[in-house]
Amino acid sequence: MPDVPMKATPEAATLKATQPAVPVPVDERPDSGPAPGKPRSLWSDAWHDLRRKPSFLISAGLILLFLTIAAFPGLFTDASPRDGDLTQFYLQKPQLTHFFSPEWLGYDAQGRSIYARIIHGTRASIIIGLTVTAIVFVLGSLVGMLAGYFGGWVDTVLSRVVDTFMGIPFLLGAMVILVSFDVRGPMVISLALAVLGWTTIARVMRGSVIQVKQADYVQAARSLGAGTSRILLRHILPNAIAPVIVVAMIALGGYISAEATLSYLGIGLADPAVSWGGDINFGKDSIRVASHVLIFPSIMLSATILAFLMMGDAVRDALDPKLR
């Protein structure tokens, strides 16, 4: 992701498939848990670690909160994000003791409640983040798996296609796609980001599959007569997917940031849609007299991105036996 916002997340990319690929025999595991003799899978091992990790719990809590806000903004505020009252509320300062009331975080230059706006702006960011990640995950994994498993000319062709899309600057490319649309809804923005973003996942998946396909259990399955699709879906995919999931989780934060950047530049969501990026753009004009118009959407945006990054970091550490 990159990225401005979007760059290939380098750390996550260094998590190679070797680590999660081969199930470690129980007696070699440093912390083999309560039931000796009963091998735990990589994921239950990771879950065992994650449950006691503060950074995971905090990020999971935050993500749950943001998902709830995105799904039911009405639970958090009754005020409308679009109604402005210029006579009373022009750039009114926050009333920090009036919790959860429309005036809590102040009003913007059109007299709209900032609290209502950041609550109602959550949905767009979350939807775009999740949609881009879903598309990228499916497309990238598919291409990466085919390139890594079949090798040869399939790999050559697919890798050149990946290189081609990687050569286009992420944010700039998305801007070029988006200016040609007059109406830019969440789906259009998601597609524009996904078209340019899937290559990171494809590369990680390819590397991961190349390492997994040489494992003994894949050879064993093949010599027992398993077909290509069975080997790919039952043996390779489950063992190669871990690093891809970590990269996707960290990338989700990057996509939310990219969407906000586009909306900030005026090439993403626009009025009447409520978005944090658009509000930050709006707030920059009054930054010296009323910084709250810029600060509060920025805090929501950064907290959301932070939550997904922390989650990805925690899951990566839990999946990486080298760090145990």
């Binding site: 950047t261 945006l301 991105i305 932070l306 990054l309």
Partner: peptide, 14 residues
């Protein structure tokens, strides 16, 4: 560094 990654560049700029 986690903060630097999560706060978008345009916010840091302002």
């Amino acid at each position: 560094t986690l903060l630097f990654i999560s706060v978008p560049v345009f916010v840091i700029g302002y």
